[in-house]
Measured scan of single mutants.
Amino acid sequence: MGFKLLSKLLVYLTASIMAIASPLAFSVDSSGEYPTVSEIPVGEVRLYQIADGVWSHIATQSFDGAVYPSNGLIVRDGDELLLIDTAWGAKNTAALLAEIEKQIGLPVTRAVSTHFHDDRVGGVDVLRAAGVATYASPSTRRLAEVEGNEIPTHSLEGLSSSGDAVRFGPVELFYPGAAHSTDNLIVYVPSASVLYGGCAIYELSRTSAGNVADADLAEWPTSIERIQQHYPEAQFVIPGHGLPGGLDLLKHTTNVVKAHTNRSVVE
């Protein structure tokens, strides 16, 4: 069995187990497998329904001669939608809004960016022009300005110390501490036991640490421990890039980060 097929099978099995364990909360999309990078042309966006009122959005972007996937989250909030992270750029984010209108038909009224990198804030200006209120932590807003990236308009308070959590509509926002970046936030959907790890969490097929220019490698494993301790009931975990899975993604990420750190020390 090929690795790609095995990865998709694991996603399907995880979703099936969740649907059985929580039949009222989960209505997993039966329309197909989780979209992969090879299936999404740059400039297009796919939506994948995880649970009743919960979707991931998947886009792709060219970077350094390669094409990478990027995940975000959409959560229903009454007759409105909360968006977590842009679709990595203005063109993708405009396509995301169009796809949401086509498939869901509810307005996106608020959006949260989970850290300051372009795959999370690139497209904020498109959201703002569409009347979406954009939010991020003060740290993310400051770092985005320093980096020359787009800056969300509103500040999220109460997320300055490791372990801080605040309720934001249908989700809980959690600051686990520094990891992929010093400002990275985690998003949890309690009604569906869905954990969105953003770039602080890796997919299972990833074996290298990737972009760690703004990471705190020493603190990252401790931050992941905080996530595990705060959300032990999480059933569906979405990484910032690639295929979702279960809580095993947290341990896998820790292993990859520690291996990278150990290699760096040896070198």
Rank of each mutant, 00 (worst) to 15 (best):
A94S: 14
R263W: 10
W220D: 02
Y68W: 04
G210E: 06
A136V: 04
S264T: 14
P69D: 15
I151G: 03
T114E: 00
I40V: 15
H57G: 02
A87L: 03
Y135N: 03
K4T: 11
D214E: 09
F26H: 12
R167E: 13
P138V: 09
V42F: 08
S113C: 07
L24Q: 13
V256M: 06
S264K: 13
A94Q: 14
F63Q: 08
Q61P: 04
R46P: 05
L249Q: 02
A178N: 10
G2R: 10
L5E: 14
G105F: 02
V189E: 04
V28S: 11
L5N: 15
P239C: 00
Y175M: 04
Y68Q: 06
G169I: 04
L106N: 05
A59C: 06
L243Y: 14
S16E: 08
R141M: 13
L24E: 12
N92C: 01
A129M: 14
R76D: 04
S223G: 04
V194Y: 04
N184H: 02
R141P: 04
G32D: 10
R206G: 14
L106A: 09
Y68N: 08
D125P: 05
G78T: 08
P221N: 08
D118F: 05
E39T: 12
G197Q: 04
G197A: 11
V121R: 02
F168E: 01
E33T: 09
E80G: 09
H241W: 01
T36V: 11
E101V: 08
E172N: 03
H230F: 12
A90I: 06
N255Y: 14
Y231F: 11
V166T: 09
H180E: 00
S31V: 09
H230K: 15
S161H: 13
S38C: 07
L250C: 03
I151K: 07
K91A: 15
A259I: 09
Q229D: 11
V112D: 06
D164F: 06
T261A: 12
H241V: 01
A259N: 09
E145Y: 14
T114S: 06
L9W: 14
D79M: 11
L97C: 00
G198H: 03
E39S: 13
G89C: 00
L159W: 03
G177V: 04
V37Q: 15
P35K: 07
A144R: 09
L156I: 10
S56Y: 15
T140G: 03
I40A: 07
A234I: 09
P23M: 09
Q235R: 11
R263D: 15
F236W: 14
D214P: 07
M1F: 05
A19H: 06
A259T: 11
A98K: 10
S193A: 13
G105E: 09
S113H: 15
S223H: 00
D118I: 08
R110H: 11
A209W: 07
I17R: 12
P152F: 03
E219Y: 06
I100A: 06
S223Q: 02
P176T: 02
D118T: 08
R128G: 12
T114R: 01
L6I: 09
F174Q: 00
K102N: 12
I50M: 09
T253V: 02
H117A: 00
G198A: 07
P35Y: 08
A200F: 04
G240R: 04
R263V: 14
A130W: 09
D79F: 08
L250M: 06
P221W: 06
A19S: 15
D64Y: 15
P35G: 07
V265T: 11
H57Q: 05
V112M: 06
Q103P: 06
Y196G: 02
I201S: 05
M1E: 05
I74D: 02
L9N: 15
G169H: 06
D248L: 07
N262P: 11
N211C: 06
W88C: 00
E203L: 04
Y202W: 07
D79V: 09
G122H: 13
S205C: 05
S208P: 07
V108D: 01
H117T: 00
I84A: 01
I100G: 00
V171D: 01
K251T: 14
S191P: 07
P152A: 03
P41H: 09
A165D: 07
P232H: 09
S38N: 08
D248R: 07
S30C: 08
W55D: 02
G198W: 06
E80T: 09
K91G: 15
A129R: 12
T222Y: 13
L83A: 02
S7E: 10
K91Q: 15
D119F: 00
K258C: 07
N255G: 14
L249K: 02
D125W: 06
R206W: 12
S30V: 13
R76N: 05
L5K: 15
L73M: 14
V67D: 15
P190K: 09
R46G: 09
P190N: 06
I50D: 02
I50S: 03
S264Y: 08
A215M: 06
N211L: 11
A213N: 12
R46I: 10
W55S: 01
S223A: 10
S137I: 06
D248F: 07
A87R: 00
E225Q: 13
E80V: 08
F63P: 06
E33R: 12
S113P: 06
V212F: 09
G240E: 05
T153W: 09
I201Q: 00
P221C: 06
G65Y: 05
G197M: 02
G240N: 03
A25C: 14
S70K: 02
L195V: 05
A136R: 04
S223P: 07
D125S: 10
Q49W: 11
G169M: 02
P190D: 09
A215R: 06
N71T: 05
A213R: 11
H260G: 14
V237F: 04
L96Y: 01
P176N: 01
G78N: 10
S7P: 10
L96S: 00
L156Y: 01
L83C: 01
T153C: 04
L217R: 05
Y196L: 05
H180D: 01
L82E: 03
I238H: 00
L217M: 12
S160T: 13
I100L: 06
L247C: 06
G131F: 02
Y231K: 03
T153P: 06
E44V: 10
N262C: 05
A179H: 03
S208G: 11
A90G: 14
S193F: 14
E101M: 09
Y231Q: 01
A130P: 06
H117W: 00
P23K: 11
E33Y: 08
L82D: 01
L82M: 10
L97I: 06
F174L: 09
V265G: 13
P239F: 03
G2V: 08
W220L: 03
L173M: 06
I227A: 06
A21S: 13
G2A: 09
R128K: 13
Q61E: 06
G65V: 07
E44P: 06
S205G: 09
D64N: 12
A213Q: 11
A234N: 02
I17V: 11
L5W: 14
S191Y: 13
A25H: 15
I224Q: 03
V237K: 01
E39P: 10
A66F: 15
G89Y: 05
M1V: 06
H230Q: 12
V108N: 01
P41E: 12
A98I: 08
K4R: 06
A66W: 09
I224D: 03
S31G: 10
S70T: 06
S113W: 04
V42Y: 07
A19E: 15
R141G: 02
A90F: 06
L159I: 09
A133E: 13
D164G: 08
R128T: 13
E267F: 08
L143V: 04
A111G: 07
G210C: 05
S181W: 03
S22W: 11
H57A: 02
S139D: 13
S27A: 15
G78R: 09
G65N: 13
V266S: 14
D85R: 00
L127N: 00
A19R: 15
D216G: 06
Q235W: 08
T60E: 05
Q229E: 13
D248S: 12
V11D: 11
Q235D: 13
G242R: 04
E44L: 08
D214F: 07
K4V: 06
N149S: 11
T153V: 14
F236K: 10
L13I: 15
